[in-house]
Simulated scan of single mutants.
Amino acid sequence: MNLTDIALSRYSTKAFDPDRKIPDEALTQIKSLLRYSPSSVNSQPWHFIIAGSDAGKQRIAKGTQGPFQANEAKVLNASHVVLFCAKTEIDDDYLDHLLATEDADGRFPEPSVKEMTKGVRSVFVNLHRHELNDAPQWMEKQVYLNMGSLLLGVAALGIDAVPLEGIDIAALNEEFGLQEKGYTAVAAVSLGYRSTDDFNAKLPKSRLPEDEIFTLV
Rank of each mutant, 00 (worst) to 15 (best):
I6Y: 09
L8D: 07
F16P: 13
F16D: 14
F16N: 09
I22S: 07
I22Q: 09
I22D: 11
L27D: 07
Q29N: 06
K31E: 14
K31P: 07
L33K: 03
L34R: 02
R35G: 03
R35D: 10
S40P: 11
V41K: 04
Q44H: 05
P45E: 04
F48A: 00
F48D: 01
I49W: 06
A51T: 03
G52R: 02
A55F: 07
Q58Y: 07
K62H: 13
T64Q: 02
P67R: 00
F68R: 09
Q69C: 12
A73H: 12
K74A: 04
V75I: 15
V75F: 05
N77M: 00
V81L: 11
V82S: 13
L83A: 11
L83Q: 11
F84C: 12
A86F: 08
D91Q: 13
Y94M: 07
L95F: 10
D96V: 03
T101G: 10
A104C: 09
G106W: 04
R107G: 12
R107S: 15
E110Q: 09
E110G: 00
E110I: 03
P111N: 01
P111E: 00
S112Y: 14
S112E: 15
V113K: 00
K114I: 01
K114N: 07
K114T: 07
E115S: 09
E115T: 03
E115I: 01
M116E: 06
M116N: 06
M116I: 00
R121A: 15
S122P: 03
N126G: 13
L127R: 14
H128C: 01
E131A: 13
L132Q: 08
D134W: 13
D134C: 07
D134N: 14
A135S: 13
P136T: 02
Q137F: 13
W138H: 09
E140M: 13
Q142D: 12
V143W: 06
L145A: 01
L145G: 05
N146G: 07
S149P: 00
S149I: 11
L150V: 05
L151G: 00
G158D: 10
I159E: 13
D160K: 12
A161V: 09
V162E: 04
E165G: 15
E165N: 08
G166M: 00
G166T: 04
I167G: 05
L172G: 08
L178V: 05
Q179D: 11
E180I: 03
K181D: 13
A185N: 07
A187Y: 04
V189L: 14
G192V: 06
G192W: 05
Y193F: 06
R194N: 15
S195F: 09
T196C: 11
A201F: 06
L203K: 14
K205D: 10
K205G: 08
S206M: 09
S206G: 08
R207F: 11
R207S: 10
R207I: 03
D211G: 12
E212Q: 12
I213N: 10
F214L: 14
